[in-house]
């Protein structure tokens, strides 16, 4: 498994190695899986009760499929760890957080101060997504 640089959970990190989506269905005792950009996150929905860690790989930060994968899992009720791995950069952290990621294992370490600033900069948001924040329209209308 990869070590998270940033983690926003209180439970113990899962030590299991993350296996591919293809293998996950067959390995009935597996609890950790890694999604590649071309995988369909919905293939995991039958197994949410035994899933504890989902790694979503970003081979290049410009490939945004992992954002949809994250939201789909959270929308389906997945409550385990959702970890962004690979080409994870400071300026994508906030959007990832909003899509439901709660841990980050960048291949190149992030400047802690820059990461902190990126994650705390936005007081409000326009959309309702997987992070549970109240959208601006919600605040306007209660």
């Amino acid at each position: 498994m990869v070590e998270s640089q940033l983690r926003f959970r209180n439970d113990e990190p899962v030590g299991d190695p993350a296996i591919t989506v293809d293998n996950f269905g067959e390995q009935t005792n597996a609890a950790a899986v890694r999604i590649e950009p071309g995988d369909d996150a919905r293939d995991l929905l039958p197994y949410l009760d035994r899933l504890k860690l989902v790694e979503v790989n970003f081979p290049a930060f410009t490939d945004g499929r992992g954002y949809s994968a994250a939201r789909i899992l959270r929308e389906a009720g997945y409550a385990g760890e959702l970890r962004a791995v690979g080409d994870v950069l400071v300026d994508q952290l906030f959007a990832m957080r909003r899509c439901g990621f709660d841990s980050f294992a960048p291949q190149a370490p992030l400047d802690p101060a820059d990461a902190e600033a990126a994650l705390t900069r936005w007081a409000d948001v326009y959309q309702a997504t997987a992070d549970g924040r109240a959208a601006i329209w919600k605040k306007r209308h209660g």
Binding site: F61, R71, A95, Y126, Q127, W137
Partner: peptide, 14 residues
């Protein structure tokens, strides 16, 4: 406009 501004899922579309 408001919905699409900084929409977190759609920051890196194809």
């Amino acid at each position: 406009r408001q919905w699409s501004s900084f929409h977190p899922e759609f920051v890196t579309l194809p």
